[in-house]
Amino acid sequence: MRARRSTSGLPRAGGEATPGRRNPLGATTGRRSRVRAWPAADSRRRTAAKERAESDTLQQGVRYRRIFVALLGVIVAVSAIVVLLGTVGLLAENRSRPLTPAEQNQYKQEEIARRWQAWPATGVFPEEVKYLGLDRAQQYARRVGIAPETECGKGVDASVAGVLESHGCVTMLRATYIDQTASFVITVGVAVLKDEESRVSATEELTQDDRVGVLPVAFPGTVTERFGVDQRQRTGWVGAGPYIVFSTAGYADGRTRAAIPPEEILHSELWPAAKSIGNQIAYFLADPPKVPPCTQGNVC
């Protein structure tokens, strides 16, 4: 007698498995369904929230990028304006323009003040210097030699040295001349002061004593070799720009000041010639230069 099929789907008695039941669509109940399961509602919310967060992050990045680009543009624009203004200002400053009266005066002062260095020694002390002789006849003094540059205190008498040094004397230049007849010996000394104001202050303190001033310079083997301190007949000076030009003169034959009668000194041609030579050298040094009309030459 056959055992009845169990209606519950359980194994039959004896251990045999009962075939699986079929669902209405024909699939066996023991196999995985091929139909995709729909996501749960909370899963859709999480996905939507994630998408919104990603969208917000993207929008924030876009906003930051726009702000950065805008700031960068502002910086570039400001930099360009600064460079442009600087360039315009530089061009305006460097462009050629007429010199002001103050600039013209400064140009003259600087040009005159540097001549003792810019010019050669033969420029400061020319080989020949014009002077006026008897009856105002034009004559020429000839340069015998140029002494080495020396300290101001070593080129003048002690009383004069103190004045020069107290006003910042820079250096002393000296040269010796003879007149056209080779009868007179003249030493010219150029004291270089810091500026014209210093020179004016110094000359206000110099005495009018014609026995002191520049020390003479003699050159052995020439007609000047007997010209020394005792042979000085007179001394004097003249101011020109930042320079004090000293002159001292004596006789080429070596006569001392004490040996010359006072009346001969007063009526001699010696001192007018020496004074004229010193004035000529002062004129050369302080002659106002030609000033260009514009900052960059003759074209404004």
Rank of each mutant, 00 (worst) to 15 (best):
K154G: 15
V156M: 01
S159K: 06
S159D: 10
V160M: 02
V160K: 10
V160F: 00
A161D: 03
G162T: 14
V163P: 08
E165G: 07
S166A: 15
S166F: 04
S166E: 15
G168M: 01
G168S: 06
V170F: 04
T171E: 11
M172R: 08
M172C: 04
L173H: 09
L173Q: 12
R174K: 09
A175T: 03
T176V: 13
Y177I: 01
I178F: 10
D179E: 09
D179F: 06
Q180I: 08
A182Q: 14
S183H: 07
S183W: 08
S183Y: 13
V185A: 04
V185D: 02
I186N: 00
I186T: 03
T187C: 06
V188W: 04
G189H: 03
G189N: 10
V190T: 05
A191W: 09
V192H: 11
V192K: 09
D195F: 10
E196A: 03
E196L: 01
E197A: 14
E197G: 12
S198N: 12
R199A: 15
R199N: 15
V200D: 12
S201D: 08
A202I: 11
A202V: 08
E204P: 02
E204K: 13
E205H: 09
D209F: 02
D210C: 11
D210G: 14
D210S: 15
D210A: 13
R211Y: 09
V212A: 05
V214G: 05
P216S: 05
A218C: 06
G221W: 03
G221Q: 08
V223M: 05
T224A: 02
E225M: 12
E225C: 12
F227D: 00
G228M: 03
G228R: 05
G228L: 03
V229D: 05
V229E: 11
D230L: 00
D230Q: 05
Q231Y: 02
R232L: 15
R232I: 15
R234Y: 11
R234T: 14
G236T: 10
W237M: 07
W237I: 04
W237Q: 15
G239N: 08
G239W: 07
G239D: 11
G239A: 11
G241M: 10
P242D: 00
V245E: 14
F246P: 07
F246Y: 02
F246I: 01
S247N: 11
S247Q: 12
S247H: 11
S247M: 14
S247V: 14
A249K: 01
A249P: 03
G250M: 06
G250S: 00
Y251A: 02
A252T: 04
A252W: 07
A252G: 12
G254Y: 00
R255S: 15
